[in-house]
């Protein structure tokens, strides 16, 4: 068990983390190439920079969506905030970074970390539940939309019980192995699943913005191409 744990937090972690970094970089490069492609084909070559920034920010801080679907909006915001903040600013994690690469940064107090961790697990489950019970959401959902929030909950739950040994029914090493390995799997999945939106969000906004801008008279041109001039649409 201890050897497996060493292996999981050593070489496997390195590999998974490298997979995430390189995979995300690769996605960015491919997306930029794609965007170049789209821009070349686009009829309207003006860049909607202002609108782009507005939409990106509005999705980063979806305050406007509070008018309807308030529960879901709140759930996802809390979910996102906790799963971003806790892994980066947890004291134990910062200590690991400091030991391996010598960099450290401010940490969360354990109480805040505990609260956010519980919130992350609860909201992850809530997201899945809401996706299941609302018919509209269910229709839009793919397998990974259910699987990924549940998978994200695993390292948070296992990390929480590892930090509170007295309420942990499992051996410490086994708990840590689950914690580290589930996180490793997530790292590898990040570039290959919807989680890649963590880096690609502005690019996807750009793509949908740029790709759907048609030249002013394109409707007529389509009609000409289809041979349906002067016919009602």
């Amino acid at each position: 068990m201890e050897t497996a744990l060493q292996w999981a937090r050593g070489p496997i972690f390195w590999t998974a983390f490298a997979f995430m970094i390189l995979g995300l970089l690769r996605l960015v490069v491919i997306t930029v190439l794609d965007i170049r492609h789209i821009m070349r084909d686009a009829g309207d070559k003006s860049l909607p920079v202002g609108q782009l920034i507005r939409t990106t920010l509005s999705w980063l801080f979806p305050v406007r969506r509070f008018t309807h679907r308030i529960t879901y909006s709140l759930t996802t915001i809390i979910f996102h905030v906790s799963i971003i903040i806790v892994p980066i600013f947890l004291g134990s994690h910062v200590m690991l970074w400091e030991r391996s690469i010598g960099l450290s940064w401010p940490t969360l107090s354990t109480t805040v970390a505990d609260v956010l961790t519980i919130l992350a697990v609860v909201t992850a489950l809530a997201i899945v539940v809401q996706r299941t019970i609302f018919a509209d959401a269910r229709r839009l959902s793919r397998f990974q939309d259910y699987a990924i929030p549940l998978l994200i909950a695993v390292p948070f739950a296992s990390g929480f019980v590892a930090m509170h040994p007295t309420m942990n029914p499992f051996p410490y090493e086994a708990t840590m192995l689950v914690h580290v390995m589930s996180a490793n799997i997530l790292f590898i999945l990040i570039p290959f699943s919807k989680i890649s939106h963590c880096l690609l969000l502005p690019f996807t906004q750009f793509v949908s913005e740029a790709a759907w801008r048609f030249p002013s008279d394109c409707g007529t041109q389509v009609a000409v191409a289809l041979g349906k001039e002067k016919q009602p649409v």
Partner: peptide, 21 residues
């Protein structure tokens, strides 16, 4: 490019497992 870059980063990441300690 999408496939070749995937192959390259895949082997690069896996190589990290086998690097000596």
């Amino acid at each position: 490019p999408a496939w070749y870059s995937l192959v390259a980063i895949g082997t690069a990441a896996i190589t990290l497992v086998f690097l000596p300690e």
